[in-house]
């Protein structure tokens, strides 16, 4: 799908950050984080509330200026790239996108902003990209409806379509499965996997649901004291990273080749 993505060898580092320090005011949220995020790979960012998942994604997207360290996109510093070029290569989905009076088709069309620009009329490529993205997310039915009249889950799928319409080769998604019911969460997971494996896109998403996160290719596990680990799912499970991050016993069982988080029926671990 995205032309540039085809040039990237799968596994090559698409997005990397080195010694990243990010904070608000007095508070340092991320302290010296270094990550290499590969093309063709879906990485889930997991961790307890307030550990800095959103901050990490915002910093990687260039929306939050780091205090130290830097982010590089395909080997070049993010800040060195022109704004529109950056927007064509890197798509970003907010945790709770603002309600808008625009129609769903118009919102998805805005994903083509960096391609078509201010004056240019949307061309055939743009229309096709919008159509593909809405079809892929099952949001075509609401194309002419105002986004503000859609349910939370419907709106989420429209915004996901907007991000896909960018046809960027790096996607940063903050809770793309929020507001979705479980079957639709699975749909989104399948869609992300297809984008990563089929189109060579690097996808980094914060995922709240642990079982869903365990279906990703790799995990970035954040705890309150910073990065616990970054690696494949078996690596994360072998090192028991989740338990360290959440500071409580996290049991994961394997069932038919899938990892499932098993909630403790009676947790005596703390309180």
């Amino acid at each position: 799908m995205p032309e540039a993505a085809a040039n990237e060898a799968p596994g090559a580092s698409a997005l990397a950050c080195r010694e990243l320090v990010v904070g608000y005011g007095e508070r340092v949220v991320l302290d010296r984080i270094s990550l290499e995020l590969a093309s063709g790979c879906w990485t889930a960012v997991v961790g307890p509330n307030g550990c800095g998942k959103s901050t990490l994604l915002r910093a990687l997207a260039g929306l939050q200026a780091p205090r130290a360290g830097g982010v590089s996109l395909h080997g070049r510093p993010l800040t060195a790239r022109p704004r529109r070029e950056r927007a064509r290569r890197l798509g970003w989905l907010a945790q709770s996108p603002a309600p808008s009076d625009l129609t769903a088709a118009e919102v998805v069309g805005l994903g083509r902003f960096a391609h078509s620009g201010w004056l240019a009329h949307r061309d055939v490529d743009d229309e096709a990209a919008v159509h593909r993205a809405m079809l892929a997310t099952g949001s075509l039915r609401w194309a002419a409806r105002k986004v503000s009249t859609l349910s939370g889950g419907e709106r989420q799928r429209v915004h996901l379509a907007r991000v896909l319409a960018v046809e960027a080769n790096v996607l940063l998604l903050d809770e793309p499965t929020a507001f979705l019911d479980p079957p639709h969460q699975e749909d989104v997971a399948r869609l992300l996997r297809r984008q990563a494996h089929g189109c060579g896109v690097a996808i980094v998403s914060a995922i709240h649901d642990l079982s869903l996160a365990l279906t990703a290719d790799r995990l970035v596990v954040l705890g309150e004291d910073g990065l616990v680990g970054h690696g494949s799912v078996p690596e994360a499970l072998a090192g028991d990273w989740l338990s360290s991050a959440f500071r409580t016993r996290i049991d994961v069982v394997e069932h038919d080749g899938a990892y499932l988080w098993r909630p403790a029926v009676r947790s005596g671990a703390h309180d």
Partner: peptide, 17 residues
């Protein structure tokens, strides 16, 4: 069109270029 983008929130508008 920029104003349309702005209705999606500042971060999203910025991420659109």
């Amino acid at each position: 069109r920029g104003l349309d983008a702005l209705t999606l929130g500042e971060d999203t508008a910025q991420s659109l270029g």
